[in-house]
Amino acid sequence: MLHEPAVQCEKDFAASYKQRLGVWMFLLYALVYAGFVAINLIDPAMMESRIFFGLNLAVVYGVALILFALILAVIYNLMCLRRERLAAESNEGGN
């Protein structure tokens, strides 16, 4: 195996911001995910309770976790794109 970069990347001036943002969003999602696990452990019968359209909490929470992942991912991408653009503009201005 050659120990050389697979692809040469340009310097990413927004890297530290994206890393911080990623960790915070990860913690937010982990909290919601932990809530799902906690309800199942503490009060499993609550998962049977009907929430809306005849769907129980287990189905609603489970599907919500999937949708929440997608929504967070899109928000994360938009925020990263914005910061990358700002970083690129300020870098160009600085040069």
């Binding site: 050659l2 697979a6 990347c9 990623g22 969003m25 992942a69 994360y76």
Partner: peptide, 17 residues
């Protein structure tokens, strides 16, 4: 979510195979 927020970009920046 773990892959996106914590792994994807840092892995890419490492730039190895």
């Amino acid at each position: 979510i773990v892959a996106l927020f914590v792994v994807a970009e840092p892995m890419k920046r490492l730039g190895k195979y």
